[in-house]
Design a protein around this nucleic acid. Sequence first.
DNA 1: ATGGTTGAGGGTCAA
Length: 268
Amino acid sequence: MRIATWNVNSLRARADRVESWLERSDVDVLAIQETKCRDDNFPWELFERMGYDVAHFGLNQWNGVAIASRVGLTDVERTFVDQPVFGKGGVDPIQEARAISATCGGIRVWSLYVPNGRALDDEHMHYKLHWLDVLNQQAGSWLEADPEAQIALMGDFNIAPQDDDVWDIDFFIQEGLTHVSEPERAAFYAFEKTGFIDVVRPHTPGPGVYTYWDYQKLRFPKREGMRIDFILGSPALAKRVVSAEIDREERKGKGASDHAPVIAELSA
DNA sequence: ATGGTTGAGGGTCAA
């Protein structure tokens, strides 16, 4: 069984890419982030054509998460319990379309799009850290309820946990950039304390191994990327992982997302 | 030359 996560940066703009990638990647479950659409303009036919069931959570042109599966898809959950809200400019705070879950082939799959902190002192950063803290608490409660549960937390975490996960850590520190700060990294490693394991890194050691390259400043051809997309597995799931890869090829050429798909191969 | 993009939507805003 193969599971994957991919921030597609607009499903409608990427429809052809996503379809041909599904065709050749042979994944059974795909967690998608940044669909950037609503249910009424979601490309349902694409997944039907390819033989996947799909569940979507999208409210507007921002965020949007989905799960596609050809090994079953049941018990869909949109948002996690107590998911923090965000509102600005007098707009009513809402739970944004950043988390969706479903049970696929015996695995509780989450597609997660962690808020971007924008700047170290921005209110979005507090939102990001709080959002991750509550998610981690929930994830802990799931494991407590069933220590043998097969759970995959997959998505764009917008955090580079290690210095080698960016092309130049000194640049990030000097510029005071997000994704590498101590609080963000602590929020990421809190999931490991809870019992979740990065199942991809052991099979894709760095340095220089990334999942995202900014469209700007020729970051991809200059190999200046960031490892910010992860598959975190519960202990029972992590035991099944036999290999993993980051499909850097998918970042190439015209019409690519700025993120590459991340894939894990499971036994049985 | 020291920059260089992309997407949604029709405002700029977001990454």
